[in-house]
């Protein structure tokens, strides 16, 4: 009991951040709270929902990728597992979202243990490529598996009337606030996580695995645990994606590009920092959506949005691998 109390206290305690950052996050959060009342454009709302979703994905990736320093590039498979679970359970047995989501998350975590155990025998490049390979295998299987819709994908049955149990609403405002709740819980969890034993141990693993082992850390197991946590995060997002879009296929919830994007959000914003994935998502998601709607769809300009994307990736990797938050910290260190 005492432990849970301490954990909750840690999760809600942001006092180790500088005052400017605390004020910044409060202002940002208030903006998030009132956003649907200020902006009524459904496109803008959709962009914000996607921002919250990707921020959640990015926070999850940050456990294994940021704090643990393991370049996991197959996170989309866990988005897919839980999205498909939610969709299939609703199609076959009419099971509500709030029941199927935990099952989807559970299956994703289970799969992550099964994959993580052999995966974490590997390091560096071997690991990164292997994560891609596994997710491609799963994607191929789902694409060719008629039971789960194969190439056609799955459409969720429409209930007709707004329904909380199945997460079907008339207005996207509802989706927005549910996503905001997930985002908020995710943020509190990560705030606890970074101060937890596993959080510290992962950073030690990232710094030097031999030293970490000499301090009583079971390196492989620590990585597997963090990988499972990351999978749970993206699985929650995947379940939400299924009921929000009412349609899924392998290219929307299992594609390699989604995996990359998830990692990129955290990388761009600043891996191993609490704000990094949020900043990354806040920049990349609107950039992607607005670029996509302005120029991506225009005739003859196919792929331009992704070209801009890739230039950003290369610039960050070459100039400041610690991302935007790394630049902020550099500037701050110079001043003070």
């Amino acid at each position: 009991m005492e432990g849970i109390k301490g954990a909750i206290k840690d999760a809600l305690d942001f006092s180790d951040f500088p005052k400017s950052e605390r004020i910044g996050i409060i202002i940002f959060y208030i903006y998030l709270l009132i956003f649907p009342w200020v902006v009524s454009s459904s496109f803008a709302r959709a962009v914000m929902i996607q921002f919250l979703l990707f921020a959640l994905y990015g926070m999850g990736w940050n456990t294994i990728g940021g704090y643990g320093g393991q370049v996991a590039l197959g996170k989309a498979q866990y988005v897919g597992i839980s999205a498909y679970t939610v969709a299939m359970m609703m199609i076959l047995f009419n099971i509500p979202f709030w029941v199927s989501m935990p099952i989807g998350v559970f299956l994703a975590v289970l799969w992550s243990f099964m994959i993580g155990y052999p995966l974490f025998r590997l390091k560096g490049h071997y690991f990164a490529i292997a994560t891609i390979a596994v997710s491609l295998v799963l994607q191929d299987i789902f694409r060719n598996w008629e039971f789960v819709g194969g190439e056609r994908g799955l459409s969720l049955p429409f209930k007709g009337t707004p329904n909380f149990l199945y997460m079907q609403f008339k207005s996207d405002v509802y989706y927005y606030y549910f996503m905001l709740i997930f985002f908020t819980l995710g943020l509190f969890y990560m705030n606890w996580f970074r101060k937890s034993r596993l959080g510290y141990q992962l950073r030690a693993v990232k710094a030097n695995e031999d030293v970490a082992a000499s301090l009583g850390i079971n390196v492989r197991w620590a990585k597997i645990k963090a990988y499972a946590i990351a999978s749970a995060f993206v699985a929650v997002g995947g379940a939400f994606y299924a009921v929000y879009h009412m349609y899924i296929d392998t290219s929307s919830v299992m594609h390699l590009e989604l995996s990359i994007l998830i990692a990129l959000m955290a990388m761009l914003g600043g891996a191993a920092s609490l704000w990094g994935p949020i900043i990354g998502a806040a920049i990349l998601v609107p950039l992607d959506r607005y670029l996509g709607s302005w120029i991506g769809g225009a005739k003859g300009l196919l792929g331009l949005d992704l070209i801009i994307y890739s230039i950003i990736i290369m610039l960050v990797a070459a100039l400041e691998p610690r991302g935007i938050w790394g630049i902020v910290e550099k500037v701050r260190a110079k001043r003070g």
Binding site: G69, A271, M314, A317
Partner: peptide, 9 residues
């Protein structure tokens, strides 16, 4: 990690 992302970009 930067090398991976760099050539990925």
């Amino acid at each position: 990690i930067a090398q991976l992302f760099g050539t990925f970009g």
